[in-house]
């Protein structure tokens, strides 16, 4: 099974205080560490596991700047055969990202049975790349995949997460695009020695502008801003007993107790 997996390097925001630059047009990311998008780590692991089960190979692709090569090296250390970096500017709207991906696949003649992406990227959270790519390639798509159970010749049985805590089992024909949900597997540990060794495997760099001409943006970033603060939180002050009585009072008032 030939698998292409799309991975993205994102800022690690959980513990960091992200600042918006004064004019609102960019974020100040100085001093913020970067890592692979969490969803993509699961997609990558799933790709490697599929190839371990059914044979074939994994190709990792990322869209971004030279620094994003880090996620390609990590992918190769995890088990990918090779990697491609499509070099593009800072903000790339989802439809262009998918267009670039399609152009790369066609221009490089990449053979595939399956394309995996993460459900969404932690930074821009568009959650649309996989779906648009499937549309452009005119192949089927399934999102929120939490299990790949069976491969039967030209189709896969997969489990999807749906509302209400339910899952559904579907059969999807190959080739197809699946966006992978976290928790589908436990991504393996990738050692630093492994990442260093992966530096010796060639990663091709393709200029985005050369495979897909620049088009008029359909989506333009206007500004970043913090949501307006609302006075909904009530801080309870005083000694422990007073605070506890306060909480009990609120719970009674709201009918919880």
């Amino acid at each position: 099974m030939e698998v292409i997996v799309f991975v993205k390097r994102v800022p690690s925001f959980e513990e960091e205080e992200v600042r918006i630059r004064q004019d609102g047009s960019t974020l100040d990311l100085s001093g913020i560490p970067f890592r692979m998008n969490d969803w993509d780590s699961y997609a990558l692991e799933e790709a490697v596991r599929l190839v371990e089960r059914f044979g074939g190979s994994v190709t990792a692709v990322t869209i971004g700047t030279d620094e994003d090569d880090e996620v390609l090296r990590r992918s190769i250390a995890c088990g990918a055969k090779d990697g491609f970096l499509i070099r593009e500017g800072a903000f790339v709207e989802p439809i262009r990202r998918a267009g670039l991906a399609k152009a790369l696949i066609e221009k490089e003649g990449l053979r595939f049975d399956l394309i995996l992406t993460g459900v969404q990227a932690e930074d821009d959270q568009f959650a649309s790349f996989g779906g648009i790519l499937a549309g452009l390639l005119k192949i089927p798509y399934a999102g929120m995949v939490v299990g790949i159970e069976e491969a039967l010749g030209d189709s896969l049985t997969v489990r999807r997460e749906i509302e209400g805590g339910m899952q559904e089992r579907i059969r999807i024909s190959l080739p197809c695009v699946l966006s992978i949900q976290t928790g589908i597997n436990q991504p393996r540990y990738v050692s630093i020695m492994g990442i260093r060794r992966a530096s010796r495997v060639e990663r091709k760099v393709i200029e985005g502008g050369k495979i897909l001409s620049a088009e008029r943006s359909r989506l333009r970033l206007e500004r970043f801003f913090y949501p307006e603060k609302k006075e909904r939180a009530k801080m309870l002050e005083g000694d422990l007993l007073g605070v506890c009585q306060g909480i009990l009072g609120i719970l009674r008032e709201k009918g919880v107790l």
């Binding site: 690690s12 959980e14 513990e15 960091e16 205080e17 001093g31 560490p33 970067f34 890592r35 995890c78 436990q186 393996r188 540990y189 990738v190 050692s191 630093i192 020695m193 492994g194």
Partner: peptide, 29 residues
């Protein structure tokens, strides 16, 4: 470690150390 066969909690600590330079994943600032 080289085989990637590491317990999940240890893996988290190592990954945090790689990204944040401390095993707890807290901000350097």
């Amino acid at each position: 470690v080289e085989q990637g066969d590491v317990p999940a909690s240890v893996q988290k600590a190592l990954e945090h150390t790689f990204v944040h330079r401390n095993p707890f994943g807290r901000s350097r600032s």
